[in-house]
Design a protein around this nucleic acid. Sequence first.
RNA 1: GUCUCCUUCGUCUAGGGGUCUAGGACACCGCCCUCUCACGGCGGCAACACGGGUUCAAAUCCCGUAGGAGACGCCA
Length: 517
Amino acid sequence: MRKMSIRVRFAPSPTGVLHIGSVRTALFNWLFARHCGGKFLLRIEDTDKVRSTSQNTQLIFEILEWLGIDWDEEPVIQSARIERHKEVAESLVSAGMAYRCYCSADELAAKKEKALAAGESYKYDGACRDVDSTAVVDRPFVIRLKTRREGAVTVADLVQGNVTVDNSQLDDFVLLRSDGTPTYMLSVVVDDHDMGVTHIIRGDDHLTNTFKQVQIYEACKWPVPRFAHIPLIYGPDGAKLSKRHGAASAVDYRELGYLPETISNYLLRLGWSHGDDEIISIADAIKWFTLESVGKSPARFDMKKLQNLNAHYIKQRENESLLNYMIPFLERSVNTDAKQRILRGMDGLKERAKTIVDLAKGAMIYVEAPTQYDEECAKYATESHLELLRSVAEIITALGDTPPPPQPTESELMEGDTERRSGVYKEVHEHSSTGSTQQETDYGELGRGGRATEDQISYAIKSLAVERGVKLVEIAQAMRAALCGKLVSPSVFQIIEVLGAHESVARISTFINRPLS
RNA sequence: GUCUCCUUCGUCUAGGGGUCUAGGACACCGCCCUCUCACGGCGGCAACACGGGUUCAAAUCCCGUAGGAGACGCCA
């Protein structure tokens, strides 16, 4: 296979929002082109003028760009090529390969009904096949292909293998409608030929169409391209993936908070694999992608796996990038201070989020004080809890305003405390634990602006728990309720570090003094 | 109905005659970690649709059966 000449295309129709299955088709085409060093072209099949919208067309471009799928030449707009399509249809008539059919819609409907009633499959009977094409008849007509009736056509499909269909299965299908517009069958063939497409990679719902199209290529005496029909994506129930499965459009997934790298990785693994690899970068995908390794069996869409992948890619992303990405998802617009807080709390936030929507929700604790408290919070509003919170507030205030207490030694720390930390926390911790010989300088850095570090806060609160003889969880959950209005959040110590003493104490006071419970 | 395609754990898949008492991932269950929830670590459950061949040997090759899907438009 000579690599330099390969040309593929993605040819969506803007009659609806871009389906996630179409996105996969685009991805496979793109990957194939990039792998082979060929060209990836775009064609908008907007010949159905009633259902096509320019908004849908825009969305196609937008989603492809979002996913990093770039195309090589000016996109072809199919509706601009109608004259060319007609021309080909007419030339086929002149060449005796096609003919004018004057059967009315009513006549055909009647024949179809009759066939159905008799339990037979309907095929156009070719009534006008031998009508003299030079005769001028003043009736509306369509142009039909004079299909070959004998023999069979075998397509050496790059994914499906050899597929043979008997020509007797085909009828003389329509190339040009009575209103003079081309049908899909005609326009794809003409456009693919004119665009120099060498490999047609598309959903396998087109497999049977292929045999009709091959006949058009042959009638035109054009070279037949290679085909690769990839299996469709199904919903969890095994039926074609659609709206009722939750989300079928690529735009939906973007709005649900999935990252583009998640979508392309997930879609790639649906029906294609490279050994045991699950997390695959675009670069590796381009390096590894071949049509031979595309599976033939249909795959079901698994939301859980998508989520898991998304969680992975969220953890991978840089905090700044995540912040920018999540801003449109935030419930309200945020100022620079809030952004800074979110950024500082991002490590704790992102390891808990499966989607950007989750992330944005979780980030609200750094945007504003709780506007309401979850029902379960009442459990931590007992007098004994409130009493503990008063002490907590004092400790936080003290930590925030004065130099923190001496650093704990390794043995003083509860076991496990020095282990298992990640991200920023770990770095901070390492700083503070090396601080035994250089406490002054560390305070100067870590306590900047009178702000205590997560570690210092953690130590102080843990000490309080020991002192009062209560379990840490009792204090921590009460703090969480007061700080977040809910019982699930990142580390409360980290939250306090990010919010600062003033805001933290304010939230705790609000909780203590609120009328309820 | 006709034609075409598909069939390994619940799901995505590895596997191209012996290395398969079938591997990985997600999900699920358990344990560890733990300030909640997650993350992470460790472990567990779980599949070659069925029936015939071919072969010394079949998840792997062939043929049936069953099940699933797609296509049968003057839609794309």
